[in-house]
Structures are given as structure tokens and as C-alpha cells.
Nucleic acid binder design. Structure first.
Lengths: 197, 197
DNA sequence: TTCGGTAAGTAAGTATTACTTACCTATGTG
DNA sequence: CACATAGGTAAGTAATACTTACTTACCGAA
């Protein structure tokens, strides 16, 4: 049966929680459907009532968390007018969120991108929207004269996204600590002021 | 039996080629050991003579390509003295190599990082060495006064690596075209001169 | 020359895993 | 009251990664 996502029965949520918890200690590949069901206290079959397949479950979990993530970033930008200030908030908020919620970061940065069907998922639609917002801020910054005219906004976005993703990657993988504020300042300093002497 | 990697029997190479070819059209997960064996013209059992498991095969393929990649980057840097010039060569050579060899790029950026045992592999040791070289160039640049004193070399490395990886990601995933020279210039311009007006 | 060890490769399993099918049981609704 | 439907179960099944036991060929030394 198709589950349209309009309701959220307890079993569905238990499955989502189970995967999220299990991915705190293992990567997606090595979490089995049997484990998920056992942890959720349901049968394996129920997973396939609510999710097309195991990957679809992952995408829906990611989607749920991404909604919260996006909301928290938008809230923190509220009231700011400077584009560069907004971009710095995006960088800092992202890094903080990644480190505070490593399962989310691992899913987003390491587990989903290797399969094509992710790019047809709702989760990816959210990510695209998030990326679109960053682009708007950049274009606004160019329009306002904060960002150098002639800067390719798409490339600047790639540099920002790439820098902050890569900045967290090591610590996410090796479970290290990182100082979000200091890293944000360092990244921002390089990207906006340039590394050249 | 353990294969120490000192010899390279035809079967082993055929298996490596088979996986490389198959990953031109499919992601690693959906390439089966049966397919690999069939394509290589050997039996499935032989895979496990030369490789610990399927993932280990992937790592060894990546390692082989990474050696060539690293060599090509080093060659292109030869004779240059300016650190920024060297870094620009690294960016450009990497982007060119990623686009010319998308299977390699997909392996390195999308397929291996999600499993812990990759970080114990020879391939990762190569990557670490490559990253170490970039750090040396950056530190040299700071010492020579090309790069602003006070720049955190580790963060600058993350910005460079992140930017160029992310710059290619979209095109690798969606099989798009990209102009390595133009992108290198744009990235380099942002990172070294800054995006601020 | 022969003997034995080892490297290359095969053939036929097996356990596990993602996923399916058929079924049960409430519960609200025309 | 009939019944459709939503939530959930139980018992499969095909496929897949990996194992075990075996064969054959080569090569150096006694």
C-alpha cells in the first residue's frame, strides 16, 4: 500500500527513530532492516508499508531533519540586512548544526549522494531550495555592492558550501571536536578578504 | 590465501578493470560481485583471492588511479616556485582530472568516505599524503610572504579542497560539462583575492 | 628426475539481507 | 450493518556477498 505521508502513525515514527539512533554508531549500509525493526519494536514488513525501500527511509529521515535545520538557519538570519553577515550566519549555523547533529551531517554529506534516486527525493528538493536561498543572498550582496561585481555567484556558492562541508567532514568522520565560531571566522576571512598577502 | 600485492596476475587486473568499467554506468552499491566476475571472465571466488571484500576491491582500484592522479599533479607543479601558482595548478589539475575521469571522482568523493575501513586503507594513506603536500605548499606560501600571515593553513586547505570538490560534484553526478580553466580562475580569484567588494 | 610447495583459478556451496505476499484486526462511516 | 481502510503481523523468496574445498600448472631444490 502506498503511504501518502499525510498521517504519521506511531510505527512509522518508531522506525524513523530507530534508524536515526542506529546510525549514531554505524553507517547506513551496515544497519540492517532486521535491526531497524527490532529496535523500533515492529516487524520488518512494516518498514515497507511506509517506505518504498531502505534508501527511501533514509531520505525521509534526512528530510525531517533538514526541515528543522533549514528553519533554524532562516530564524537566525531574520532581521539581518547585510548579505555578508547573512552568509556568515549560514556558515556558522550550518557548522554548528552539523556538529551538534552528526547523524544528520553524515547522512547529508556522506550517505545519500552516491545513489541517483536521492536526487528525485523530497529531501533533495529541500536541499535545492536551501541552496537557492544562498544564491539569492549572494546576488543580493552583489546588487548591494557588498560583494565584488564580476564574482560568479554560482562559484561563490560552491566555494562556501564546499568549504563548510569539508571543514566539518574530518571531525564528523573521526568524531573530533570543533570550534564553530573560530572556524566560521577563519573561513569567512579567507572567502571574503582573500588569502593573498 | 593472502595476496600481498607484490604480483599482479591477469585475473586480478581483469577484476579491477571490470569494476572500473561497470562503475561508469552504475554506483558501487548496485554493481554485484557476480557482474564483476562475469565481466572479468573469471569466477566470483577469485575476487576473494585478491581482495578482502568488495569494498577492499574498490579501495585498491581507487588507490591505483590515485597514484596516477598524484603523479600528474606533481609533474605539473615541477619548476614552479610561487606557492599561489602551485595551488592554482593543484586546483586546475584536480578539476581536470575529476572531469576526465569521473569514475575516479565518484569513487573518491562519493563512494568510499561513508565506511570507516576506508580510512585504514592504502588509498586513504595516498590521499593523506596528497593533502600533506598541499599543506606544505600553503605553509611555504606563508613563509614566503605570498599568503597573508595569520591565515590558518589547515582551514585554507579545507577551503581549497572543499571548493574544488564541490565545484565538480554537480557535474559529476549529473554528467554535465565543465570548463576547468574558467572554474579554476573563478575559485582562485575568490580564495586568494576575496569576494568582498 | 622427481618431489613438494605455492600461485592462479574453479565450482559449488551458505548465511544473510532486502523486499513481498497474504493475512489479521480494529475502527469509523455511509 | 456492511465494509472499506489504516495499522500492523508472519512467513516467505530471490539475490548477494562471501567461504570452503578442490584442481592445475609452474618452479626451485634434493
Amino acid at each position: 500500500m502506498k503511504h501518502k505521508g499525510q498521517t504519521n502513525p506511531p510505527g512509522r515514527q518508531k522506525i524513523i527513530n530507530a534508524l536515526t539512533e542506529l546510525m549514531g554508531t554505524k553507517d547506513f549500509q551496515s544497519v540492517t532492516t532486521a535491526e531497524i525493526a527490532a529496535r523500533a519494536g515492529v516487524t520488518e514488513g512494516l518498514i515497507y508499508k511506509y517506505f518504498k525501500d531502505k534508501k527511501d527511509l533514509l531520505y525521509q529521515v534526512l528530510n525531517d531533519i533538514f526541515i528543522q535545520f533549514n528553519q533554524s538557519v532562516v530564524e537566525r538570519m531574520a532581521g539581518k540586512v547585510s548579505a555578508i553577515e547573512k552568509l556568515e550566519i549560514i556558515i556558522r549555523a550550518s557548522i554548528e548544526y552539523y556538529t551538534a547533529n552528526r547523524v544528520f551531517a553524515r547522512m547529508l554529506l556522506l550517505e545519500v549522494r552516491n545513489t541517483q534516486d536521492y536526487f528525485a527525493s523530497e529531501a533533495y528538493a529541500m536541499v535545492k531550495n536551501y541552496a537557492r536561498n544562498i544564491l539569492d543572498v549572494i546576488n543580493d550582496g552583489i546588487g548591494r555592492g557588498e560583494i565584488r561585481r564580476g564574482t560568479d555567484p554560482y562559484i561563490l556558492r560552491k566555494v562556501i558550501l564546499g568549504a563548510m562541508e569539508h571543514a566539518c567532514l574530518g571531525e564528523i568522520i573521526f568524531a573530533g571536536q570543533l570550534d564553530a565560531k573560530a572556524i566560521t571566522q577563519a573561513i569567512s576571512n579567507i572567502i571574503f578578504n582573500g588569502a593573498r598577502a
